[in-house]
Design a protein around this nucleic acid. Structure first.
Lengths: 350, 350
DNA sequence: TCGATTAATGTAAGCGCTTGCAAGATTACG
DNA sequence: CGTAATCTTGCAAGCGCTTACATTAATCGA
């Protein structure tokens, strides 16, 4: 079932069929109708591979993320996809599970499919890969890693700043012993986050007691990390998580152990995923504007004014502290409950 | 940058390059080495579109889901993808957001890309589409909709049975006023679920009081539905949700209103998504073996014994009641708390 | 050492589609 | 009614790759 079959049935040449299918060039109305009818009768579906090969319009973007399961990544994907669809583009996703090797093969796959733009929203990254992508002419967006180049746009979130706000806020509530939960700290960008926490903590309060533990991304990882902390003997009054997704597991573990949050222990996340409002207690976190990021990616990847793509710039996205129910003043002594958890205080989000 | 460039650089013909790249036919060791070197030096990446066109091995599956955000769908995708990768396949996802029209275009897209197999895991479905897919030679798996045909495998979950267990269980706990929360009930397969609930409820307990409300999939939808129920004046003692994802929102709304779950009101979900264990109280639900479903899909779509594909069968997957913390005996009178929530009772899951 | 095998590589015909160019069909206008 | 200008449509050359088949090189037994 190919162009030729359709052409025959409509008594035209393949060129004409192609023209009506792509709505390009001029075709007499009657002919067009005949072609369309033939297409429908034959239930013809163009072979996109052939189309791309032949140099047809390439309306496909690629996106590579570390962990689709983490709503943070999924949200970015969803807005990107929505934007892309609106402009007639498709987007292909690939998931790396934080495995650098997997990243490499995913990039190759995307290049192999000849996507017209690639978003790399991952926390792991080999420098050689960055170079390879920089060398290619492909428009690329990196999130959180690498540096801007000719064909590369760079989006970074001001993690430092967000972490600072969180620590500052907790410190203001009287917390002096904090624990940090991260994951995959062997991967540089993530280790970087841990380091950021430590630096901020040290800078802000030299006499702060901190501990860090690492695990896997996700609730289960958070749960494990929480266990480790709780059995460590450090007895922090606040647990700072590298992201909300892990904080979910922390909350659960504390609940299971009958440790009241926030009365006995405060917990913070990072990202402000939708679920952060749907757990109890609702999570205090730093909001990362994922929709904005999705839009930015789309902007950078799809040439709006044909031929006049702006590239090579770097965008720094700021975070916003969102105080909900999972944080409260530090307990001086490890006592029992202290009444109802307090309601949201600072920023109110829709 | 194409095969020919590589061929030139390695002083061989394109055929030879192709052979070493696909590891097919016999090539002298020395030549192979030269080719590989040329490939690396040139950073050559084969054009997959051309490869498919030329009749190379098609190792791509497609999967269409209604709502990637719902962990239920995501889980299936993840196991399918893992299985597929293990066999050297890629899988393309498309998201429909429960929009039938979107389903149609997604199917066309997949067919256009000439995937070698397609999994349609959606809750909306036009009969015409089923027919169209049945007519195509493409191996297809439908989840929860349609019927088995020559090239179509059908996976159904025994929703009826699962719902029966839930209602039965709640009835056993003394619940006599139940509310059902669904979503997109204009879509047949989902309306079907609502109907199932009603039938089961009626059959099991003719004097049961029920109400149903519909909304959008997800926590927000669950929250809205919960509000509707709570202001309806029906005062159910148990809320049965069509899936866990919505139940999350219900739990949150009840928490916000200081309605104790399960002491004042019991809540059940369906699916047993990972998060069900990570909310408080942990969700009582019916477990749908998503991994098994993912494996089944992979089995059906990838010919294991080349040329000998089993098709046209129908698989009925059974559910399992998982009792956690969100259900308890019904309150006789609308009183206050009753101590700690009880621990898991029945099936213990890893 | 010399055909006869067998291994290694090259040749070239597509796969289904797009598109520049040219030919044929229409229309306009004097 | 003739010719130039304008529309429509067809022709055919690829796009980059795979693969059946042809060709050449290497190997072997007698």
């Amino acid at each position: 079932m190919n162009l030729e079959d359709v052409a025959k049935r409509a008594n035209v040449s393949t060129a004409t069929v192609s023209r009506v299918l792509n709505n390009v060039g001029r075709v007499k109305h009657a002919t067009k109708a005949r072609v369309i009818q033939a297409v429908e009768e034959l239930k013809y579906t163009p072979n996109l591979n052939a189309r791309m090969l032949a140099g047809g319009p390439n309306r496909t973007l690629g996106m590579i993320v570390s962990n689709l399961e983490n709503p943070f990544f999924l949200d970015i994907f969803r807005t990107l996809e929505a934007d892309a669809h609106r402009r007639g583009y498709e987007v292909l996703v690939a998931n790396t599970d934080y495995r650098p090797q997997h990243l490499v093969s995913s990039v190759r796959l995307m290049i192999g499919r000849r996507v017209s733009g690639l978003a790399v929203v991952v926390s792991e990254m080999k420098p050689s890969l960055i170079r390879e992508l920089a060398d290619s002419r492909l428009p690329v967006v990196f999130y959180d890693v690498g540096a801007a180049r000719a064909n590369i746009t760079n989006i970074k979130v001001n993690y430092q700043n967000g972490m600072q706000r969180i620590v500052e806020y907790l410190y203001g509530l009287g917390h002096r012993r904090m624990a940090f939960i991260g994951h995959h700290t062997t991967l540089e960008p993530l280790n970087d986050r841990k380091r950021t926490f430590l630096e901020v903590a040290q800078a802000y309060a030299p006499r702060l007691k901190v501990m860090t533990v690492g695990s896997a991304d996700g609730p289960v990882g958070g749960q494990n990390a929480a266990r480790e902390i709780l059995t460590s003997g450090v007895h922090p009054t606040a647990i700072v998580c590298v992201n909300d997704f892990m904080a979910l597991g922390v909350l659960r573990e504390l609940h299971a152990r009958r440790i009241a949050v926030p009365d006995e222990l405060s917990v913070t996340g990072f990202d402000d995923i939708g679920l952060a409002q749907f757990v109890s207690p609702a999570l205090t976190t730093a909001h990362i504007p994922r929709e904005e990021i999705g839009h930015l990616i789309c902007e950078a990847l799809i040439p709006s004014h044909p031929g006049h793509r702006e590239h090579g710039h770097e965008v720094l996205v700021d975070t916003e502290l969102v105080v909900r129910e999972s944080t409260a003043p530090a307990q001086t002594r490890p006592a029992g409950r202290r009444g109802q958890p307090r309601r949201p205080v600072a920023v109110a989000r829709k």
